[in-house]
Nucleic acid binder design. Structure first.
Length: 1069
RNA sequence: GGGGCACUAGCUCAGGUGGUUAGAGCGCACCCCUGAUAAGGGUGAGGUCGCUAGUUCGAGUCUAGCGUGCCCCA
């Protein structure tokens, strides 16, 4: 006996039971143990930062990881899944700042770096619990207990090892460059980080007069969207080969601007063109800058230079240059040997020298700067410019600015060709990421701005001799101890004072900053530089740092075994983040490895959006929290909805409705088939361990559903091997629909047949096998429901069966089940049924009304035999007494002959349209007859003669007008619509059955309840009832069915115009 | 301004290697079933496949240009 199964199922409740089972039985651990000797399938978990709440996007990535990992695991691989936590960097510091209500580097320094660091450690795991709850709830199996943690000493040492290697290769250097600077945070950000923080804003766009020296009343017009950089102006840039006009305005003042921009800037303002010059002719001309608080150092300034990047699509054709605040500006001024001016402090405020705006934050001062220019008559035009501008990805209200700064860089540009070569070997899903988004990013690669002038991060392991300037990179704690055995005394001292200080912290600020050493016989002390590094570098080191490689000797083997990864997946925002850092670091470090590394397959997921395609955001509240959704619909429904909606690389519109559909269209179909099976198997006392009939000996219906199953198994495996989960899902949905809507529906009577029969045995065996295989097929997608079914059908019933579906092998192809002709036969039969039903609808002949025959017109004998295999079912579905095949096709149909384009295209080429026309014009019936008798026909086309065989021509049958006929895929079904008196009576009887059953339902009688019926009717209706009394009684479960009203509720109904009255009462028990 | 992606039925989306009747679900209309039943099933209506050129015997599919939207970056 199976445990009874109710068709009413609470999936959330089911989840909880399954989860408890997994926990009690340690199933996840057993999966790993059981597969230990199997070949590994390597997966890298991109470490999330646990100091923020998990959201819907995280659910998607975890679910997507899970399906492939479970699939590989069931397919005979050993699939370790180690969790990881990203613990360093700005995200954490910013959270702590918020918590402490402070902001900025100075505030942190005032608070104290040691207590601040301690706060960071606390904060790192603030939401770990929420992450674990979410992870468990969606059924993502990952080893959380053995998670790698980026701030741990061994991890940091691995990162140091990597950096030392880069340093020794000359790939780590300190440079003065314009970086994206976060003033409030007091640090530079990497290209990847900047990419995280764009948003659309309105900025002022102003056109300013720069008076030309030696030309009274004449000014250059220059354009800028950053007024606050004007005090640091060094030069103006023109396009050398563009034309520049000198014009006189109606007020007598003269302006110089690009001719291409004149119409736009001057509009219909009256002006007189005085002169036209090439940009080149203005080069070297000096001008008076709008502000002159401090004189530039190190070279001449305030003159016109030529530059390539000047565009004529916007602005005035003259660009204001402030080398301290723009990458292009920096390069241009440097190559011209011009001076330098940086009138902005690192915190984004103006220094005292800028008397008018001293102490003001740069962007906040824009309005006053504009006002100042206006009062001095230097402002020509002011507009608002809407564009995307980067903000701090951790605090979106803080704008970034371009700012020249000393910073440490990784010289990625030198080796980028190797990264590109590596990238060529990676399988990206979708494919276009390789050459598109990711490839383009590599194309435009700039050196990695690595250092952060912050506190909580992997310290940059560079020590500098304070006298000689000698620079050393350090790769481990041990290396330091070799130089100075007492280097960490300061830390141990601190640890004695505060016993809670973990050993991991010895490699962190502020303690690491006290680590110094000297070298015998040499002057000076080696002290560490103050910076920490970009936390994206940390996560990029994860393939080796998770094992503490190479320092932790016992784990070196683990690293080599788990490198490179077979599979990773994250969202598209990681192209410039983790995907980049992983691949770049790996390429730079592991010269000897063969490409690709450190990952072979990468599935890139799009963003989750709401129903309107808008980004999901907490502030908009435009989505239901996935956890809530799972509470009402269950984890499997959410998972299935995500799999069926998510195409890699594309945004996924996700909404509650999709989850509901997943339940009704998928989960419930399987569940109902399963509940149906269990119910009847239990009634019948069916034993799953008893021998079952051979597949070959079972009826066509059974062999068909097994063939469909096998076809589906093959398709699903192929798609999953290809990382195309969305396609796998479609195959499964198609099969489940076939199972539920055709196999189970059509096979029902076989299951409730009385007594023993080969047919019933085959039906039970087949449905059981199909359900078990399906369970294994869908287990990676819907791990909870599949487990519940598997437990009941297999695990607790079959001796030596796996304890869990996830310990079982994935559904496998079976040669025994393949039967393409049978699949085709059912497809044909269903087409015939569909056509017949359409005829009925067209002619308004209810299916309830039996008809004598359906005539099927087929083009060849094969199809006829094929259709006959399912004759009984077709008869039943169409409610006809007979299926006939006509020899006189011409009576009902026309032949339409078409070339088989795929076959003839290459052969006929240009003659194809003529061929099509010739076939259409010919007498189809005659030509077809010829084709059948002689095996070929000859056509003359454009002077040439072509012999066409049966495979070159496709025949379509088209129903002739005037018949109750319909066609479907080239087959015609004709219904004999003549209703004889006998048929009419049979129809009436069906109507009566229908009325009585309706009445049963109205009275809320239990489904199996026996009833007594007494009836009254006249004329033909009475004759019909009398003639079919037995059938009516059987179909309405009437143990007594008598003429004349009896006891019970009285019902009146109308049956095709005649009155019917009957009494109905349940039989006493 | 550059790069990437998308544009297919009222809505949400599928449509390897080009093959001539473009599919599904939801919604809608009509119908069936009443032994999966506060379920199930069927039939139908609905599409110039964003637009315009081109390649080809043949284009939703390939090429180019344009338009609209989203993402990424200047």
């Amino acid at each position: 006996m199976f445990d009874p199964v109710s068709p009413q199922v609470s999936f959330p409740q089911l989840d909880k039971e399954v989860q408890r089972f997994w926990d009690d039985e340690r199933i996840f651990a057993k999966v790993l143990e059981q597969s230990k000797k199997k070949p590994p399938f390597v997966f890298y978990e991109g470490p999330p930062t646990a100091n923020g709440m998990p959201h819907a996007g995280h659910v998607l990535t975890r679910v997507m990881k899970d399906v492939f990992l479970r699939y590989k695991s069931m397919s005979g691989f050993h699939v370790p899944r180690r969790a990881g936590w990203d613990t360093h960097g700005l995200p954490v510091e910013v959270e702590v700042e918020k918590e402490l209500g402070i902001s900025g580097r100075q505030a942190i320094a005032d608070f104290g770096i040691e207590p601040f660091t301690k706060k960071c450690i606390e904060s790192v795991f603030k939401y770990t619990h929420e992450w674990e709850v979410m992870t468990r709830r969606i059924g993502f199996w990952v080893d959380l207990e053995d998670a790698y943690v980026t701030f741990h000493k061994s991890y940091v040492e691995s990162v140091w090892w990597a950096l030392k290697k880069l340093f020794d290769k000359g790939l780590l250097y300190k440079g003065h460059k314009v970086v994206w600077w976060w003033p409030q945070g007091g640090t530079a950000l990497s290209a990847g980080e900047v990419g995280q923080g764009y948003k659309q804003v309105d900025d002022p766009s102003i056109t300013v007069r720069f008076p030309v020296k030696g030309m009274p009343d004449t000014s250059f017009l220059a354009w800028t969207t950053t007024p606050w950089t004007l005090p640091s102006n060094i030069a103006l840039a023109v396009k050398a080969d563009a034309d520049y006009l000198t014009v006189r305005l109606d007020d007598g003042r003269k302006l110089v601007l690009a001719e291409a921009r004149a119409a736009n800037l001057l509009g219909d303002r009256p002006h007189e063109i005085l002169e036209r010059r090439k940009g080149q002719q203005w080069v070297g001309t000096e001008y008076e800058p709008p502000f002159r608080y401090v004189e530039p150092e190190g070279g001449p300034a305030h003159r016109v230079i030529a530059a390539d990047f000047v565009e004529l699509a916007s602005g005035s054709g003259l660009v204001h240059l402030a080398p301290a605040f723009g990458e292009d500006d920096f390069a241009a001024c440097k190559s011209e040997g011009l001076g330098w001016l940086q009138l902005l402090r690192p915190d984004g405020t103006f220094p005292p020298e800028v008397t008018d705006f001293a102490g003001r934050f740069c962007k906040d001062a824009d309005r006053d700067i504009i006002r100042n220019l206006r009062t001095r008559g230097l402002l020509f035009k002011e507009e608002v410019y809407r564009h995307d501008y980067p903000f701090s990805w951790r605090r979106m209200e803080d704008p970034l600015i371009q700012y020249a700064r000393e910073s440490w860089f990784v010289r990625t540009t030198q080796e980028i060709h190797r990264v590109q070569e590596n990238n060529e070997h990676v399988h990206w899903e979708p494919e276009h990421i390789k050459r598109g988004r990711f490839g383009q990013f590599l194309e435009g690669n700039v050196d990695w701005a690595l250092s952060r002038e912050r506190f909580w991060g992997t310290p940059l392991p560079i020590w500098v001799n304070d006298e000689t300037g000698d620079v050393v990179a350090v790769g481990s704690v041990e290396e330091i101890l070799e130089r100075n055995p007492r280097a960490f005394d300061h830390f141990y001292e601190a640890q004695r004072r505060d016993r809670s200080l973990a050993d991991h912290l010895m490699v962190h600020k502020p303690w690491i900053d006290h680590v110094t050493w000297t070298e015998r016989g040499k002057p000076g002390v080696y002290r560490r530089v103050p910076e920490v590094i970009d936390c994206w570098f940390d996560s990029g080191c994860m393939p080796f740092a998770q094992w503490g490689y190479p320092h932790v000797k016992e784990q070196r083997k683990k690293f080599h075994k788990a490198f490179p990864a077979d599979f990773i997946t994250e969202a598209v925002d990681q192209t410039r983040g983790w995907f980049y850092s992983l691949m770049t670091i790996s390429t730079l470090l592991f010269d000897e490895e063969k490409y690709p590394h450190p990952f072979k397959n990468c599935v890139v997921l799009g963003l989750l959006t709401d129903e309107q395609g808008r980004k999901m955001s907490k502030s908009l509240k435009n989505y239901t929290d996935p956890l809530e959704l799972m509470e009402s619909a269950g984890a499997d429904a959410v998972r299935w909805a995500l799999y069926s909606a998510t195409v890699p690389g594309q945004n996924t519109r996700f909404f509650d409705r999709a989850t509901k559909e997943a339940i009704s269209k998928f989960l419930l179909k399987i569940w109902n088939s399963y509940a149906f099976f269990v119910q009847l198997a239990n009634i019948d006392g069916w034993d799953p361990t008893a021998p079952r009939p051979a597949v070959g000996g079972r009826p066509p219906m059974d062999r068909w559903v097994l063939a469909e199953l096998d076809h589906t198994v093959r398709s699903v495996r192929r798609e999953l091997d290809d990382y195309k989960s969305h396609l796998a899902v479609r195959h499964i949905e198609g099969f489940v629909d076939a199972l539920s809507n055709w196999y189970v529906r059509r096979s029902k009577p076989r299951f409730w047949a009385q007594g023993e029969s080969a047919d019933k045995a085959a039906a039970f065996a087949t449905l059981y096998e199909v359900l078990v295989e399906t369970t294994k097929l869908i287990a990676p997608f819907v791990p909870f429901m599949s487990e519940a079914i598997f437990q009941n059908l297999v695990a607790t019933r079959i001796p030596k069966a796996p304890r869990s579906v996830h310990l079982a092998a994935f559904a496998e192809p079976s040669v025994e089940r393949v039967d393409e002709s049978l699949r085709r036969a059912v497809q044909l039969s269903r087409a015939v049924v569909a056509a017949g039903l359409r005829v009925r609808a067209d002619t308004k002949l209810k299916v309830r009304q039996p008809l004598s025959k359906a005539i099927v017109a087929v083009a060849d004998e094969m199809e006829r035999v094929t259709i006959q295999r399912f004759e009984r079912i077709i008869r039943d579905e169409l409610n006809v007494e007979e299926i006939a095949f006509t020899d006189e096709l011409e009576t009902y149909v026309d032949y339409q002959l078409l070339p088989n384009f795929r076959a003839l295209g290459p052969r006929l080429g240009k003659h194809l349209p003529a061929c099509k026309a010739a076939l259409a014009a010919a007498d189809g019936a005659a030509l077809y007859a010829q084709l059948r008798t002689k095996g070929s026909v000859v056509l003359a086309l454009g002077g040439e003669r072509f012999e066409l065989g049966p495979d070159d021509i496709q025949v379509r049958l088209v129903a002739k007008a005037g018949f109750a006929a319909a066609e479907e895929q080239g087959h015609v079904v004709v219904l004999d619509t003549q209703i004889t008196p006998a048929l009419h009576r049979a129809g009436l009887a069906r109507e009566v059955i229908n009325r009585i059953n309706k009445a049963r339902k109205e009275m809320d009688l239990p489904i199996g309840a026996r009833v007594h019926v007494g009836w009254e009717a006249d004329g033909e209706l009475a004759e019909a009832i009398a003639a079919h009394a037995e059938t009516i009684a059987a179909e309405t479960l009437a143990s007594r069915f008598e003429r004349g009203l009896g006891e019970g509720r009285l019902h009146e109904a109308e049956v095709s115009g005649d009155g019917l009255r009957f009494s109905l009462r349940p039989e006493e028990a």
